[in-house]
Design a protein around this nucleic acid. Structure first.
Length: 575
RNA sequence: CGGGGCGUAGCGCAGCCUGGUAGCGCGCCUGCUUUGGGAGCAGGAUGUCGAGUGUUCAAAUCACUCCGCCCCGACCA
């Protein structure tokens, strides 16, 4: 492609509304433009990267035995009513009516559609297993779109769905996708890791998220330094402690103390001169409308997802002031487990604590020397805590470390959640009707591209890994008004194009500096500079974007060399 | 949904408080010079000042309403 003919509007200034580096660079490099909040247009350069990624995904999915389909983005309400998600999905599901007043939604995902497709045409175990995937635009009406293409409302996604006759088969399907995902992200040249994850509202038994390591990532994860354990912070387990009993002779008499307007752990700690480790925090939650108290050591944080999962309820939120007043008889800040009449869940961190401080369920009062067993019953002990750095690994006891990442892929074991609700059944060998076992597997396309930029950039712009690079080579004649330079550049361009290399020929009448800056910004891995001095000696300059390394190459060898370098960089990630 | 901020040329912003000629930088167009890391000089084009209503002789500026966008929080595959 000739640069002079391209629609490639690069921008020198950093756009004011772009927070993260990938967003800034995608706009500056002329990859994307915002249409409206959370909705973007991809320009030619951006779309080429998307296509490169999609190609890698297609290759690996096909290799894993999946088949590509293409399903509508517009979906009828009936299907969602059948699965039950018309009610449960919430406001992220964009709903609308057509001229006949029929209800529809824009698909945020396609479990309903694929299940309806499969149940109509798969009737016997002979037609199973199957794995179908598509690359489609999804729409989720995000509360707050942000970070450019990383968290937007309309986005490209590869979603695959597997259907199996039994658990064992489903396990295999899952495994295949897990491996395919590893291949995909490795081929993209990304530093990533699969982590155990909570399966959220899509449902299902367990799942892995594929996280691209990035400090700007929205997700936090915990991983073990010693073994391979890695989990989303939402899911990361705390190893259950040895059962510890406290000794009755250590218990001091319960004492009520006046604590006027002292509410938070810091305030209590400061006022009573007690370490947060000797205070027990009591949080009142509303779970599907009913109150629960959760106890945790003062210096720790509660992981609401663990509480929700433990109670097996749909919604959990901190209780309102009214509910707190109602169940504790006191305003917010003075709740405690003593004589409270609602279920009390206790985090492991409280185990073994003696003579601790809690709220007194009375305005401006706390208890000192509270002891479990005497002052309240110890029931429902479990892990309700957010993992912290240097906790012990639940698998091997090693040190837990925290890191941030961008979730680019997610593999789920769905089980029969949708097949059951929507009656996706088949006849087995014995003529018995059985429910299909499903799995679903997503990859965020735009997000993966953004993640790649987060990991591969420098002060001058993007540094594309070869497999994702929109173009592999850019040829830059230093001055297009010198015929010898343009003739050489032109013939190199022709030769490389003929060799199947993705190449930009920067034939613009611009100063060399401008072209260099643009080439760096848009991140082309290899740059060939055709200048007068080197050309006089029959050579051109080859600059490697990633390392900054510059080589002088004889003209008659450059195409071969470039081809070899590309081959190596396309291959280096494949094991 | 709660809190905060912004909306003026393609982009980034000033002007608004204290009402009266709409400005700066970058970009864009023309010409000359320049030509290995975002050139110099000269000339030029470009605005329903987010929309509406009101106050006023007069509104980018004051008031009210609406819309859009961004940030923090809550929420979340």
């Amino acid at each position: 492609m000739r640069y002079s003919e391209m629609f490639l509007p690069t921008v020198r200034e950093v756009p004011s509304d772009a927070e993260v580096i990938s967003h800034q660079l995608m706009i500056r490099a002329g990859m994307i433009r915002k249409l409206t909040s959370g909705i973007y247009s991809y320009l030619p350069l951006g779309y080429r990267v998307i296509r490169k990624l999609e190609q890698i995904i297609r290759e690996e999915m096909n290799k894993a035995g999946a088949q590509e389909v293409f399903m509508s983005m517009v979906q009828p309400a009936e299907l969602w009513q059948e699965s039950g998600r018309w009610i449960h999905y919430g406001k992220e599901l964009l709903r609308f009516r057509d001229r006949h007043d029929h209800e529809y939604c824009l698909g945020p995902t396609h479990e309903e559609v694929i299940t309806s497709l499969v149940r109509n045409d798969i009737k016997t175990y002979r037609q199973l297993p199957r794995n179908l995937y598509q690359i489609q635009t999804k729409f989720r009406d995000e509360v707050r779109p942000r970070f450019g293409v990383m968290r937007c409302r309309e986005f490209g996604m590869k979603d695959a769905y597997s259907f199996d006759v039994d658990e064992e088969g489903a396990e295999k399907s899952y495994e295949k996708m897990f491996n395919a995902y590893n291949n995909i992200f490795r081929r993209c040249g990304l530093k990533f890791r699969p982590v155990e994850a909570d399966s959220g509202s899509i449902g299902g038994k367990y799942s892995h998220e594929f996280m691209v390591m990035a400090d700007s990532g929205e997700d936090a994860m915990a991983f073990c330094e010693k073994c391979s354990y890695a989990a989303n912070l939402e899911k990361a387990e705390v190893s259950s402690p040895e059962r510890k009993e406290t000794l009755e002779q250590d218990w001091l008499p319960l004492e009520e103390v006046l604590t006027p307007d002292v509410r938070t752990i810091e305030e209590v700690s400061g006022f009573l001169k007690v370490d947060p480790q000797n205070i027990v925090k009591t949080l009142i939650f509303s779970g599907d409308g009913k109150p629960y108290a959760v106890l945790i050591r003062g210096d720790k944080d509660i992981n609401e997802i663990k509480v929700r999962n433990y109670l097996n309820i749909a919604e959990l939120e901190l209780a309102s002031d009214e509910m707190i007043k109602d169940v504790t008889g006191a305003p917010r800040g003075f709740a405690g487990p003593v004589k409270i009449k609602i279920p009390v869940l206790i985090d492991y961190s409280v185990m073994g604590m003696v003579n601790f401080v809690t709220g007194a369920n009375k305005e401006d009062a706390h208890f000192k020397n509270v002891n479990m067993g005497r002052d309240f019953k110890a029931e429902a002990f479990a892990d309700f805590r957010v993992v912290t750095e240097n906790d012990q690994c639940p698998r091997c006891g090693g040190d837990i470390k925290l890191a941030r990442g961008i979730e680019v892929g997610h593999v789920f074991k769905l089980g029969t959640k949708y097949s059951k609700a929507m009656k996706a059944v088949f006849l087995d060998k014995d003529g018995q009707e059985k429910i299909m076992i499903m799995g679903c597997y997503g990859i965020g396309i735009g997000r993966t591209v953004a993640a790649a930029i987060e990991q591969n950039n420098d002060a001058n712009g993007i540094v594309w890994p070869m497999p994702l690079a929109p173009y592999q080579v850019i040829i830059t004649p230093v001055n297009v008004n010198e015929a010898s330079l343009t003739e050489t550049a032109e013939s190199l361009y022709q030769a490389m194009t003929a060799e199947g290399i993705d190449v930009i020929y920067d034939d613009r009448d611009e100063r060399a500096g401008v072209k260099f800056k643009d080439a760096d910004l848009i991140g082309i891995p290899l740059r060939i500079t055709v200048g007068r001095k080197d050309l006089a000696e029959g050579r051109v300059e080859l600059k490697i974007r990633k390392t900054g390394e510059v080589r002088l190459c004889p003209l008659d060898d450059i195409v071969k060399q470039v081809k070899e370098m590309i081959r190596q960089d396309m291959d280096f990630n494949i094991s």
